[in-house]
Write a protein that binds this DNA or RNA. Sequence first.
DNA 1: TCATTCCGCTACGGGCCGTAGCGTAACTCG
DNA 2: CGAGTTACGCTACGGCCCGTAGCGGAATGA
Lengths: 206, 206
Amino acid sequence: MPAPTPHRRGRPRSAAADRAILDATRAALVEVGWSRLTMSHVATRAGVAKTTLYRRWAGKSELVVDAVAVLFDELELPDRGSLRADVESVVLSFAALLERPETKTSLMAVIAESTYDDALRARVREAIVERQKRLVLAGRHRAQERGELPRDTDDPGPVVDLIFDVIAGAVVHRALVSAERIGEEWARRFTTLILDGLAAASRATP
Amino acid sequence: MPAPTPHRRGRPRSAAADRAILDATRAALVEVGWSRLTMSHVATRAGVAKTTLYRRWAGKSELVVDAVAVLFDELELPDRGSLRADVESVVLSFAALLERPETKTSLMAVIAESTYDDALRARVREAIVERQKRLVLAGRHRAQERGELPRDTDDPGPVVDLIFDVIAGAVVHRALVSAERIGEEWARRFTTLILDGLAAASRATP
DNA sequence: TCATTCCGCTACGGGCCGTAGCGTAACTCG
DNA sequence: CGAGTTACGCTACGGCCCGTAGCGGAATGA
C-alpha cells in the first residue's frame, strides 16, 4: 500500500522491509498498545532505519492502518445456509477480530485521528470500513437469492448503510466500549433483534 | 471529579482553576483536536501552572474525560409521548452531541486509551457510558408504564445491555466511522428497525 | 559504465513529558 | 494571632520522541 508506483529505474523498494515493518508494528501494538507505540520503536524492532519508515508512511496513523488492514482481509462470509446463520457468523468473526489486542487498541485510535485528518479518513474507509461493508452486501445478496429478503425495488444504498452501521456499531460498542465478551448467546439475541426488525420494516415500508 | 476529598486544613484547591482548566481543555480540543492537544498547551491557555494540572489529573486522557463528561450530563430524555418518539429524540440528541468537535475527536480516543488502562476504562464508564445508559433505562421504564413494553418477568440486564449497545453503537458508528450526518430520516429508519425488532423479540422469547 | 533510486547511519533542533525544588499565598486549628 | 498545612506559580531539568538533512554505499535499468 505505501507506494503503488512500479519503478522503472533505480533500486526497488525492499518488499522484505515492508513485511518486517508491518509485522513489527503489529507486534509492538500487542505489547505496548497504541499510545506507547513510536516510530523509532517500530524501526528498531523491524531492523530498519527510521528514515525508511518515513519514506513510505507519513506517520504513525497511516502505518498502523496498513498494518491492521490485512487482518480485516481475513474476514470472510462462508455460506451457512440461512440469513440468520450468516449474520451470527459474521458477528462472531468480527467480534473475534476486535478482541485481538492489535485491533482492539488501534481501531478506535485511528478513527479518532481521522476525525481531524481527511486523508487519513479516506485511507481508513478504503482499507478497513469498505472491506467490512462488502460482507453486508454479500450476505444481503445471498439472502435475496435464497428468497429470504425481497429483491431491491428502489435504491438499496440507505438500507445497506443503516444495516452496516447497526451491525458494525453494535459489535464495536459491545467489544470496546462496554468491554464485554461477545459470545454465541449475545450473537443470537442480537441477530434475532436485527432480523425481526428487518422483516417488519420490509413489510411496513412501501 | 479530580479530588473528591474535602480538605480540613491548608489552602483549598481553587475551583476557579478547575473551571478554567476544563474550559481550556474543551476549547483546545475544538481548535487542535485530540492528538495535538498537550498538557502544556492547556496549562498556558488556562492561565495555570503545568504542575497544577498534574496535581489533579494523571494525564491527558483523564483530563479530557472529565472535560467532556459534563457535556454528556446535558443529555436528557424529555417525554415525547410514545416510545417511538422517545427513541428518535434520544438518537438525535446523542447524534448532535457527537457532532460537536470536542466530543467527536476525543470520545474514540479515550476509548482507545482505555483498552490498555483499566483505571481509565473505569473512569470512562462511570463518567460517560453509564450516564448514557440511564437514558435507555429511563425510556424503557417509561414505555412500560405506558404499556408499550411488557413488564420485566426475568432479569432485564441482558436486554438493556443489548439495546444500549445497539443504539449507542449504531449512532457512534454512523457519526464517527461512516462519518455521515444523522438526520431525522435516518433516525426514523433506525427507530423503526429497533422497535419492530424489539416487538418481535418480546413475542418470540418466553 | 552511468544515472537513478533506495538503503542504513548519524546528527540535529524542536517540542513535550513528568518531576523536583523553591518561595509564596490561603486556609485551619489551637 | 501565630503555627502548621496545603495549594499555587515559577523555573529548571533529563529524557524521549519527532521529523528532516546529509552522507556513503548498494541495487537496479539504460
